[in-house]
Simulated scan of single mutants.
Amino acid sequence: MIYVNGRFLTQNITGVQRFAEEISLELIKIRSDVIFLVPDLNAVKKKELLNVIKIEEVCGLSGHLWEQITLPLYLYKNKRPLLINLCNTAPVSYPNQIVTHHDITYLKFPKSFPFSFRLLYRLIAPLILKNSKHIITVSDFSKKEIVTNYRCPLDKISVIPNAYSDIFKPYITKTDLQKKENYLLAVSSTNFHKNFHGLIDAFLSADIDMDLKIIGGSADVFKKLELDQSHPRIHFMGRVDDDQLVALYQNANAFVFPSFYEGFGIPPLEAQACGCPVISSNSASMPEVLGDSVLYFNPQSKSEIVKALELIADNHELRNKLVTYGFKNIKRFSWVKSANKLNNIIQNFNG
């Protein structure tokens, strides 16, 4: 049997959990010996998954304590099977495991995280990476960052990229295409490195007649970042379900991704899959993920963001070209391909 650390099933969806869920759903199509271990069946967020995947409850403690104590004890009692960890954390004391480390944002942008979070990751990340059999990350950019900062051997790390779900798709009929609304869309968590503060500052200075809709986190969280919420053209949408998210992508005039630092960045691919043109930061992994399919800007430069916003707002022909380029770009990524890569790694270490 292959066991998967299923703690992610009890967490709210961000990019990390999206990776874990989507690749898991494809992995179980490839092999029938996968069991997901969770601390509490009642805590699983998507109840429909209980009927789709094999889930076993391992009771005792919760959160990080479950992951560091209860989970490895259970595995040691069951002949030390291979454990797959698809999010950033894993049991420190369990060597027969494959771990996933999406990026090292906690080192590069400590301002984005509470002190307790930074301390935890600084303590356990090097131990997890050192003690594991193999490491997965989501881009060549992240692989280089991990190798440089943790001195991991290159051959110990494999790149398995993110992709986008099939629910993200464009409108089909000509009537639907006329539903585009007059707004720009941004989707992400509210950490400092996501650069919502820079986007809002540039948006308020740009000469455009559009609204800005921001998805991710609550208005209260944005208040803590001291973002301007008073402008009538800026709308904080909070968390939305997948159907709402698809509709927002489909109806937007353009999608904006202003992040300083990303190990991968799934939202731009989701936008492109929905037929939404993308303008993006040129930092970190974004050129690797998006290639020549977007209009880039320097996220540290307010004037460049303003220029990109004004250009995408005024140039209908450019938006149409970016939609076409986006459809071409997303063909490079597939959860099926990524799950097959994971399965190959599992076979190498489960002999």
Rank of each mutant, 00 (worst) to 15 (best):
S259E: 04
S62D: 10
I84P: 07
K224L: 11
D166M: 01
S139L: 06
H64M: 11
D166W: 01
G63S: 14
I234N: 12
L75M: 03
L61D: 07
I200F: 07
P110L: 00
F333L: 01
N344R: 07
E262F: 11
Q250W: 03
L225D: 06
S303W: 02
L322H: 08
I157M: 06
R332E: 14
N320R: 15
E310G: 11
V323L: 05
D40N: 08
G238L: 07
F113R: 00
I266R: 07
I104V: 15
A273K: 09
D155N: 11
E56N: 05
P232H: 10
S142I: 04
P95W: 02
Q229I: 12
K77R: 11
L83W: 07
S205Q: 11
K133I: 06
L311C: 14
L27A: 01
I23L: 00
E56V: 05
V306R: 14
T148V: 04
L342G: 06
E270R: 08
K307I: 07
N350Y: 12
K79E: 12
N78I: 03
E22Y: 03
C152L: 15
N348D: 04
K29G: 00
E270D: 06
I305R: 13
G15P: 04
L107S: 01
I55V: 13
I84C: 06
M1T: 10
C276W: 05
S285R: 09
I69C: 05
L129F: 05
R319Y: 10
Q250M: 05
Y171A: 12
P287Q: 13
F264W: 08
N343K: 10
A125H: 05
V4C: 13
I136P: 09
S116P: 03
A186M: 13
L73F: 15
Y325G: 07
I214W: 13
C152K: 15
R18T: 13
R7T: 11
R151P: 07
P232A: 06
Q347A: 08
